[in-house]
Nucleic acid binder design. Structure first.
Length: 680
DNA sequence: AGCACGCCGACT
DNA sequence: GTCGGCGTGCTC
């Protein structure tokens, strides 16, 4: 077989269809082109339907129901556009009903969904699911009532403040001239106009958003999690009118999300939220910003798996406006764009010089057990700082003991169900698997039949207990996934937090201890160094100005990059290393998973210069092939991959195992820019 | 997904 | 002669 073309037999089949319906003259009259709400890849294109007399409300963006093939079967659809003449050559069916005449699919969002899906070899439908929350009739009625009453969300505009910490006027001109920048955030915390303590980064992005808003445009800001959304919301108070801020995150109940959609579509707004906020409606886009794009939460786990940063780049190209990719530490992806001069690098007016102390050596044999993990310099820093205020202690893992081992033979204790490591949540708790959660009471060692367990490593709970004993009289507070804590006051306290769960302290921490650096950096992953720098800089950024941050147990280049805050030098070298190894993001990589013969056939048909195929290799779901390819062939490859998915989904039937009828055919799953082949 | 169309074996 | 097997392809 030769290389498949994207439009294999489009003209043929159109002819056949027209021939089959000799009575079907292309008709005149109002026609709606709709996108069907169906997961089938072969239905992921526009369909023409006649707008019957009486359905005057049909217009772009509204939700309708349409018949599909047989009477009785109807599906939901969004009207993308209306026209006077049909494009489809056969006879058209009528739109069956208008579900709601509120235009919820805005044209700019449709264009974005289509482009994002095409680039990722996925369905625009799947993207629309992220862009448009479920309809809420009550919310819609309230909104319509308010609107017909002539109420507008406008309130008195506030005067935008100059953006602090960057060269005078620099960031302002980025918003005004709609440029795109890689922004180095300034570490530290400050009090927002509303009196709450927030990271400086949040203030900067709030001010940038306000500038866009005051120019009569919308700003979209994507952050990793709801805690960051709250910081940003706090930073925006007093900077833009209350009614102009829309929150867009999964933590919100659906009615709130739907209300947010309607509000964002209404006109200029500052829409802040987690990854899917990049799909929020914004007819006039003044700014799209992504905070901390290295955080894995920006990866969308639903097909077509598009990273918020990538969606933001596409949206910027389509709609213009300023683009800001900001973080304390720059990602390799952003560094690549800086080196291509597609992004300008923008640094603070003065290089931040946090008081950072790496301590490589940990050996302290003759000290009490509680202190063994903490070098004396860090110990002194904590003790001194605790006289003045809160001290942050960052650890790698939650719980009491992240690992357990046989007390006799020292073999690591593993889960009988999945082979994962056993751990303990509390001292003396029943051991449980850290991967699947299965408890393991009455454990016995498969190696030596021993039944006693010994702890390996220290989680947040154990660290907190030990520090409590070491600093009698000091309040110890715990912050991790199970014990969420967003703010602490300025009274002395030891705050033990897992990475990423650090609360903000009023006035900043008087000292920060990064305890498990050695353990964190030891993990095997392509981006582990990048991740560590992000975890450490984000924690160091919570320190009060001048307060010491001690990185324990890590030396070498990464420690000095952190200590000197020369983070861009470091990521430049990192990207160079990856280029030498042909690793992302200097090339793109993707995976194709499905039945072994289907995957094999797909990769055979996709072969081309600029594409390297690794595998297929067996995986639980069948087989997986890894595609490594140049950016220059990405667009074409995605289109051909998509054609292959459609071809297989409409021709392939039951599994090749004979005899077994009705076996569901495993669809071919495509995941472009999948990081998994490079982890472990 | 459903469902129609189509081209080969045993029935009134 | 035809009823019906489910393989193949389409859904405006």
């Amino acid at each position: 077989m030769s290389t498949p073309s994207a439009s294999t037999s489009a003209s043929d089949s159109a002819g056949v269809v027209a021939g089959r319906h000799p009575g079907g003259e292309p008709s005149r009259g109002p026609v709606a082109r709709v996108v069907l709400d169906s997961p089938l890849p072969q239905l992921d294109r526009l369909f023409d339907y006649r707008i019957p007399p009486g359905l005057d409300a049909v217009g772009p963006g509204i939700r309708v129901r349409v018949p599909l093939r047989t009477a009785g079967r109807t599906v939901d659809a969004f009207v993308v556009e209306t026209a006077d003449e049909q494009q489809f050559p056969g006879p058209l069916s009528d739109i069956e009903a208008v579900v709601s005449d509120v235009p919820v699919l805005r044209p700019e969002v449709w264009a974005l969904a289509r482009a994002v899906a095409t680039r990722a070899a996925g369905s625009a439908n799947d993207v629309l699911r992220l862009a448009i929350p479920k309809r809420q009739v009550r919310v819609e009625r309230e909104w319509l009532a308010r609107r017909s009453a002539g109420e507008r969300a406008e309130s008195t505009p506030l005067v935008p403040a100059p953006i602090e910490g960057y060269p005078a006027g620099a960031l302002e001109s980025v918003i005004r001239d709609r440029r795109r920048v890689a922004l180095a955030a300034i570490p530290g915390v400050l009090r927002s106009a509303g009196g709450e303590w927030v990271g400086r980064w949040a203030r900067t992005l709030a001010e940038a958003s306000a500038l866009a808003y005051h120019a009569g445009r919308s700003a979209l800001v994507a952050v990793p999690d709801y805690r960051d959304v709250e910081q940003l919301a706090a930073a925006l108070r007093g900077i833009v009118p209350e009614g102009s801020v829309v929150r867009w995150d999964a933590h919100q109940p659906n009615p709130e999300r739907y209300r947010g959609l309607l509000r964002a579509a209404e006109g200029p707004a500052v829409v802040i939220g987690t990854r899917s906020v990049v799909y929020a409606p914004a007819e006039h886009l003044g700014l799209i910003a992504v905070w901390n794009d290295g955080d894995p939460l920006h990866r969308e786990p639903l097909a077509p798996y598009v990273h918020a940063r990538d969606a933001a780049l596409i949206r910027h190209e389509q709609q213009g406006g300023a683009l800001i990719l900001a973080g304390h530490a720059r990602t390799a992806e952003v560094q690549r764009l800086v080196e291509l001069r597609w992004l300008e690098a923008m640094a603070p007016a003065r290089r931040p010089r946090p008081n950072l102390v790496p301590t490589a050596s940990l050996v302290s044999a003759d000290r009490p057990a509680e202190q063994a993990r903490i070098p004396s310099s860090a110990w002194r820093a904590a003790r001194d700082a605790l006289r003045e205020g809160p001290v942050l202690v960052q650890v790698a893992r939650p719980g009491f003991a992240p690992g357990l081992a046989c007390a006799e033979c020292a073999a690591p204790a593993r889960c009988r169900v999945c082979g994962g490591p056993l751990g303990q949540d509390r001292a003396g708790a029943i051991p449980a698997c850290r991967w699947c959660g299965t408890p393991a009471p009455g454990w016995s060692c498969p190696n030596c039949r021993g039944t006693r367990l010994r702890t390996r490593g220290r989680g947040s709970v154990r660290t907190a207990e030990e520090l409590g004993r070491a600093f009698p009289g000091v309040r110890v507070r715990l912050a991790d996934g199970e014990h969420p804590l967003q703010h602490v006051g300025e009274e002395p306290a030891l705050v033990v937090a897992t990475r990423g769960a650090e609360p903000i302290a009023a006035g900043g921490y008087r000292a920060v201890l990064l305890l498990d650096g050695e353990r964190m950096i030891a993990r095997e992953s392509l981006r582990i160094a990048e991740d560590c720098l992000r975890w450490w800089t984000d924690a160091a950024a919570l320190a009060a100005d001048g307060a010491p941050t001690v990185l324990v147990g890590v030396g070498g280049g990464i420690a000095s990059a952190l200590a000197t805050w020369r983070l861009d030098d470091w990521v430049r070298a990192e990207l160079a290393d990856r280029r030498a190894l042909r690793f992302p993001p200097t090339v793109r990589a993707g995976t194709v998973v499905g039945q072994p013969d289907a995957v094999a056939e797909a990769v055979r048909r996709l072969a081309r210069p600029g594409l390297e195929v690794r595998g297929p290799t067996p995986v639980p779901e069948g087989a997986r092939a890894i595609l490594v390819f140049e950016y220059s062939v990405g667009a074409e490859l995605a289109v051909d991959l998509r054609a292959e998915v459609i071809r297989q989904s409409s021709t392939r039937r039951a599994a090749p195992t004979p005899g077994k009828r009705g076996r569901r055919p495993v669809p071919l799953r495509v995941h472009l820019d999948d990081p998994s082949p490079f982890e472990e």
